[in-house]
Computed example of a mutant assay.
Amino acid sequence: MSDRFSPFLTSLDDMEAEARIQQMIEHINKESDAQVREIYNEGLSDSSAAIILSKGRENVDRYYKDKIVQLEKETVSAISAMAHEGKMRILNAKNDHVKELVDEVYERLLGLQNNSKKYTSILESLIMQSLCRLLEKRVNLVLRQKDVKLVQTFLASLEKNYQKMTGLEVTIKVDPDITLPENHAGGVLVNAKKKTIFVDNSLLIRLQHLTTVRFPFVHRNLFH
């Protein structure tokens, strides 16, 4: 994507810098012409016209040199500012693109509920991962209300699989007091010890984690 914006940035810098240089040259010419006229008028009314004209030429030369130095400094500063602005535009465009991708991914996560078999497999994996992180004997699951019946169909087998995997027993219950918002993409929040410890494995939180902690990795893979 950076290659797509580079020609535009280069062209923009060249045109704006050229316009600024032309404006400075016209300004210098006008001011120098005014000084020459002033010197000429003074020379007409002064018997030492030759001396005045000589000093006038020195003043004009010094004036031109000062203006050229000023022009060079202002041109470099203007080009630097335009380059910085162009880079910020490109960075913002990249960030907007990443945000669009994240929004698209979230829409796809919302669509998982239309694929019952796939969503069930994902939900089992998220719960098992949470159990293995907590390693507690009793846990509660916080789910969307629409997922409660689905999860209850595989709780018994999940407890057995957890025991086979870790050698530990666990009792899993659905939290009767808390639910995930129905408009969320799903997933699970697992808590234990009277809700003092928990693992948030909801799909929304996992996506947010991806776009914050893993943002540099996502950005690098998209644009390099």
Rank of each mutant, 00 (worst) to 15 (best):
L9F: 07
E18P: 00
E16Q: 13
E85A: 15
H184P: 00
R20V: 01
I79G: 01
A83W: 02
R144A: 03
K193H: 09
L150F: 00
S45V: 12
N221V: 04
Q35T: 02
P181M: 08
I28M: 14
V139I: 01
T196Q: 06
S116C: 00
N140Y: 14
E182T: 03
N29V: 08
L189T: 12
L91R: 14
I28G: 03
T10R: 12
I39F: 09
I90R: 11
D14C: 01
R144P: 05
Q152F: 06
Q145S: 11
D147L: 03
H184R: 15
N183A: 06
K146W: 02
T10M: 08
L44E: 14
H84C: 11
E100P: 06
E100C: 04
D13H: 07
T10P: 00
Y119G: 01
I28L: 14
Y40L: 12
N41S: 09
D14H: 12
Q23P: 00
A50S: 10
L44T: 04
M1I: 05
L44M: 13
A78D: 06
V76A: 15
K194G: 06
H84M: 12
V218T: 04
A49H: 02
K160W: 02
Q70D: 14
A19L: 12
L222Q: 05
A19C: 04
A34C: 04
N221P: 04
Q23S: 08
I122D: 10
T166Q: 07
E136M: 08
H184N: 15
K146Q: 11
N221F: 11
V102A: 14
I79W: 02
R4D: 12
E16V: 09
Y162S: 05
N41K: 10
S48M: 09
D61W: 02
R37K: 15
E31I: 07
V60Y: 00
F154P: 05
E107M: 14
K160I: 05
V102E: 15
M15F: 09
H27R: 08
I52S: 10
S116T: 13
K73N: 13
R133G: 13
S32R: 11
A81L: 09
L155Y: 03
N221A: 05
F217Y: 15
N114Y: 02
K149R: 10
I127Q: 06
S2G: 05
K67Y: 10
N41V: 01
N29S: 09
K67S: 12
V174E: 00
F215I: 03
L109R: 06
F8I: 13
H97Y: 12
S80N: 15
L91H: 10
A83G: 07
G187P: 05
D96R: 12
E159L: 00
I79F: 01
